[in-house]
């Protein structure tokens, strides 16, 4: 397997609290890898470290062999490592389509001055963004709400829109923080299929944090388990389900059991 992302002994301390403690793992190109763990285990913090939204206390993240820790988040996004947020994070006062169009920013070839002056390249870009946005809308089946104001959407659709925004940047690695939260069973299964297609049809490497265990077991190639900031297990869904340390961690918390 060729690893595209290396997480090397990454640590994040907030004052006396160690949110993430010397976590290391690798992600293969085209893999779907889930990070699971009880509430407050440090999963979101780990994603923020990988996307460089918070600086690491120790350790580093390599993307394609290049160190991406300590870079500005927009630069990491530009390299192809893009995150979505656990909290529903969208541009509230824009329509669904406008949300997706603005997220194409990374792909503009024209300069800001070019956009200001309405240069030929700028107009070509705008056209391409519109077409690509429609493509993403079709891909995630958002046609019915394309012109809806984002602030009017129910939770399930917001999640999908968050993913659409991430997709618009054409990421190499997409980090999804709880993409199925607030969705009913049918919606979740649809999204699971979408994430699969994302990898199969577009070759995107996907990392995801999720509490919905049936969905995690169904979707993941491999799983990394975090407890109290430390990695306690790593392996295929079958290996994880029978791992005594994982079972213990989950029984010890109020979280749902890991079984199906």
């Amino acid at each position: 397997m060729t690893a595209i992302l290396h997480v090397n002994g990454i640590t994040k301390r907030y004052g006396g609290l160690t949110a993430v403690n010397k976590v290391s793992f690798e992600v293969a190109k085209g893999e779907i890898l889930s990070v699971i763990g009880p509430n407050g285990a440090g999963k979101s913090t780990l994603f923020k470290l990988i996307s460089s939204f918070v600086p690491a206390t120790e350790g580093e993240v390599l993307f394609g062999g290049e160190r991406i820790s300590d870079r500005a988040p927009h630069k990491v996004a530009r390299l192809g490592v893009v995150r979505t947020f656990q909290e529903t994070t969208i541009f509230r006062s824009m329509t669904v389509r406008d949300n997706i169009i603005v997220a194409h920013h990374l792909r503009s070839k024209a300069s800001l001055l070019g956009f200001f002056a309405g240069s030929r390249q700028a107009r070509a870009d705008e056209e391409a963004f519109g077409a690509s946005a429609d493509d993403i809308i079709a891909f995630l089946c958002l046609d019915a709400i394309r012109d809806e104001l984002a602030s009017n959407l129910p939770q399930g659709h917001l999640r999908a829109l968050g993913m659409a925004i991430g997709l618009a940047t054409q990421p190499t690695v997409l980090l999804l923080d709880e993409p199925f939260a607030g969705m009913n069973h049918d919606e979740t299964m649809k999204m699971v299929a979408n994430v699969r297609r994302l990898r199969d049809e577009r070759g995107v490497t996907v990392l995801l944090v999720e509490h919905d265990m049936p969905a995690v077991m169904k979707i993941s190639d491999r799983i990394v388990v975090i407890n109290f900031g430390e990695k306690i297990a790593e392996g295929t869904p079958a290996e994880i389900q029978s791992n005594p340390r994982v079972i213990e961690a989950y029984l010890g918390s109020e979280d749902a059991a890991i079984g199906m």
């Binding site: 996307s51 939204f53 500005a72 988040p73 927009h74 996004a77 530009r78 893009v82 995150r83 979505t84 947020f85 994070t89 969208i90 541009f91 509230r92 006062s93 824009m94 603005v102 997220a103 920013h105 990374l106 925004i165 991430g166 618009a168 940047t169």
Partner: peptide, 16 residues
Amino acid sequence: RSLQQNEELAASIGVN
């Protein structure tokens, strides 16, 4: 407008 509405999200889509 993207900045006005959510700077973090803007950064995540690559806006400087």
